[in-house]
Design a protein around this nucleic acid. Sequence first.
RNA 1: GGUGGGUUCGUAUAACGGCUAGUACUCAAGAUUUUCAUUCUUGCAAUAGGAGUUCGAUUCUCCUACCCACUACCA
Length: 520
Amino acid sequence: MSENKKTRVRFAPSPTGPLHIGGVRTALYNYLYAKQHNGTFVLRIEDTDSARFVSGAEEYIIGALEWCGITPDEGVENGKIVEEASARHPHGPYRQSQRRGIYRAYAEQLIQNGYAYYAFDSAEELVAKRAEAESKGQTFIYNQVTRKGLRNSLTLSASEVEHLLETTTGWTIRFKMPENEIVAMDDLIRGHIEVNTETLDDKVLWKRADELPTYHLANIVDDYLMEITEVIRGEEWLPSLPLHYMLYKSFGWESSRPRFAHLSLLLKPGGQGKLSKRDGDKLGFPVFPLPWTGTDGEVTNSYRGAGYFPEAFINMLAFLGWNPGDEREILSLDELVEAFSLERVIRSGAHFNPEKAKWYNREYLRAKSDTELAKLYLPILKEHGVEATEEYTARAISVIKDRATFVADFWTAAPYLFVAPSEYVQKDAAKFWTAENCGYLSKLRSHIAAYKSELEVAAIAESIENYIRSNQWPFGKVMNSLRLSLTGSASGLGIAEIIYTIGLQETVRRIDNAFKTLGT
RNA sequence: GGUGGGUUCGUAUAACGGCUAGUACUCAAGAUUUUCAUUCUUGCAAUAGGAGUUCGAUUCUCCUACCCACUACCA
């Protein structure tokens, strides 16, 4: 364990597509841990598989973290991955493909010391071996047993090896997994784990064909060079933890080996399997923070696109697999930093719950001021062809806030606060626009028109109710015919709220309009 | 198949080995209300199964079942 070392954690995604919420959660936990320990949150791009590289993915990752408010301290500058070392970014470049020169020597060092070897088996040969084993109901594994019968620097003569290294390009460097050794590991979340090397295979560390390391080598070398103190990553890496321990040992870096924490996976809402990038559109909720345009031109659903506030999204994600130990559920990013602890991270996989996500957004929406929300609503109004002042919009929001989960709901909940109805729901009109009701309504219109000034919601409600009751009219009928004239339907906001928002003049105008359109 | 990880209401989770297993979301009922929604109240609902240790097990141990991950010259 490393004492007194400055905390440095990293998020190291592979740019193979858009980051999904599982990845965002991993980044978030890294961020929370770093901030809590006054440490540094590094972003590193692990692009050692050129075949799977997807253009735009890197920008997406940076943009997504930015939107979430969990911006890296190191590795990113001005929205771009840092390509050269500098005072603020002393470990650059932060893209592994640009660090390729670094890894070869480390792989060679392992060979020198007897911890790795050259393997000359072609990819096709290995595929054939696997197929053959499978046909016998077995599994072929390149390990301490089978390597003795394969073409590598352990079985071939020195001169043959020399010759093959010079004349062929298909070879790899493999880790020489020791025989029958117990690897004892400690995970910050899972506790002590032991594995026998007998069950492990000889992983490829370096590929001559690509002149690139594989994940395992690059990851360990970079974590070491970048002085990472804690590795917080997904549970899918737990099976390779023994290899990584062995690597640290073989390099002689055990004293600076980071501590590991393996996060459980995010599971599909229904039950089976981990959440995957495809699930979003299938299951009807976003799995991506930001929209992503695929090669087919299709744009995916996203949290930002669906109208989630980043704070709500982050809060929701933080609570998927962690809790502060008390009953608080709404925590700002700063409060999360304060409360976070790896010890309280849940070991089991968490089923993602779309309903709870909405609940979080609703809570954050309600906590925001009407003016703040008005600023966000104005552009949406504009899309509907409505120009309104911020003041008017804020007033409208004050009466519809409780009916909304997202800012866009303000419109669907009550467009009539901004646009007079041009049509009336047939069924409601048939029911409430009767000769009897019209009689009441025309008198009520005069009553309202006689107000000398605008009134508050309560005053309007009281006045109208008193007027109707004192005349002993059927309250519901009158109110709904009034609502119909104001909104175009018989359901929606309270009458007083509507009048308060749109004002007396507009109220009277709409009643008159209804009479004109629907007749008396 | 092998290796590793996991298992508390439908979901997310709480509970130094010790009260009637708590909370939130969802759902249901009731109240409030001019409609719808909100709000409030109440309710439904869980320790996977079996052994063991113990005065006492959701908690510790073992077995079984089920779920998940990994098992690539992908990360």
